[in-house]
Every structure is written in structure tokens, then in C-alpha cells.
Simulated scan of single mutants.
Amino acid sequence: MPKRVDHDLRRREIGEALLRIASTRGLQAASMREVATEAGVSLRLVQYYFHTKQELLLGALAYLGEQLSARVEEHIRALGLPPSPRSLVYGTLTAILPTDPESRRLTRTYAAYYALVLAEPELAADHGTAYPDLLERFLTTQLRTAQQAGQVDPDLDAPTVAAGLLALTNGLGSSVLGGQRDGDAALAILTYHLDRLFAHGTGGMASDNVAA
């Protein structure tokens, strides 16, 4: 009896092969043939599941977003903090900082996509900002909840602050990858800004501080 092929799994394996190339060698020189070699399949099979390189890049980007979502959820659980807007903001942003092998891999892979967008801006137009936008909306929701609970200044513009926090975290991640500072120093800077943000409410962020 012929072996049943799990097409979703095979497609994911090919997409994740591209992500491995992105995290180690970047994307601008990654060809469909290289992806086939990395995935251990034929070029024809890669082209069967992804008709163009653009389609492959966008498909793999969706898998990368799923990996980052899983990383954030696992990291928040591992911190073991009481559920609150403060702990969710802290857990989400510290999950993104490149402080361990998995977060460094994710940060390098996203950096490879950012570098590619500079040369191919149409990639960003085709859903390239979907996951960052989702993160900003999530952070905005948590900040608004904190405002309602009196934990954050009610006059702050939550969407603007959320965008700034994400930009700060991404910038700190780049500085870690570039060797300007280590992960602990980046975590300390992020925590400082979160302490100040949540200083409006009772209690301090220090009680939530757990190394990422």
C-alpha cells in the first residue's frame, strides 16, 4: 500500500529548512536548490510546494511567527509569574531578547528577513509585518488593561508606548547580536524602562524580575 504523504508536514519541513539557512547564512544568497539540500529533498519537490522563492519566503515567515509565538508562551510559563498585564508585557518582551540559543536563533532569523526587505521591499508589503503588528496590538491591550487598573499612567498613549517598547526590545536584540552588550545588560535596560512605565501603580517590577 502506498505511503500516505503528510503534505502540511512536508511543506513545513521545507519552510523550516529555509529558516535554518536564514539564521546561519542569511537569505539573500539562499536559493531554492540550497533549501532543497538543507531539507534533504529534491529541488522539484520544493518547487511543488512553493512555486516561487517569494512564496517560499512568505510561507517560511509564517512558520517563524508560529515559532516566536510558541517561544513567548513557553517563556511566560517558565517565568511562573502571577498573571497580570505587567507580567505579560515583561514575559513577552524578555522572550524576544536574544538571551539563550533559541531566542538568538529567532532574532538572527528575523534580522535576515529585515536585511532582505531592504533589497526587496515588496516582501514587507506581502504580510511581512503581520507578526510585529500582532505583537504591538497584544502589548497595547495589556497596557490599556493596566491603565484601567491604575498600574500605568492613564494619560499615556497605549499604542505609541507599545510600539516604542517593541522597538526598544528589537534594538536591544540587535545590540546583543552585534556584540555591543550581552543579554544580561540588555535585560537590565529593558527592565529599567518597564519599571518606570509601571511605577504609576503600587508595587515594583522588581518583584517580577526573573532572568530570561
Rank of each mutant, 00 (worst) to 15 (best):
M1L: 12
D6G: 06
D6R: 14
G15S: 06
E16K: 13
I21N: 01
A29C: 00
A30E: 08
R33V: 06
A39Y: 00
V41M: 11
L43K: 13
L45S: 05
L45T: 10
V46Y: 01
V46T: 01
Q47I: 00
Y49W: 11
F50I: 02
H51V: 13
T52Q: 10
K53R: 14
L56C: 01
L57C: 03
L58T: 05
L64Y: 08
L68Y: 05
R71Y: 08
H75W: 01
R77Y: 09
R77E: 15
L79P: 04
G80R: 08
P82L: 03
S87G: 11
L88R: 10
T94G: 13
T94L: 07
P98H: 07
T99H: 03
E102W: 14
E102Q: 14
S103P: 00
Y110V: 08
Y110H: 09
Y113M: 07
Y113N: 12
A115D: 10
L116W: 13
V117Q: 04
E120R: 15
E120A: 09
A124D: 00
A124Y: 05
A125P: 04
D126C: 11
P132E: 03
L135V: 10
E136K: 10
E136P: 03
E136V: 10
T140F: 06
L143I: 11
R144E: 15
Q147N: 13
V152S: 04
V161I: 14
V161S: 08
A162T: 09
A163E: 07
L168S: 04
G173W: 01
G173Q: 12
G178Q: 08
G179I: 03
R181M: 15
G183Y: 04
A186E: 13
A186F: 11
A188D: 15
Y192D: 15
D195C: 06
F198Q: 03
M205Y: 07
S207M: 12
V210M: 06
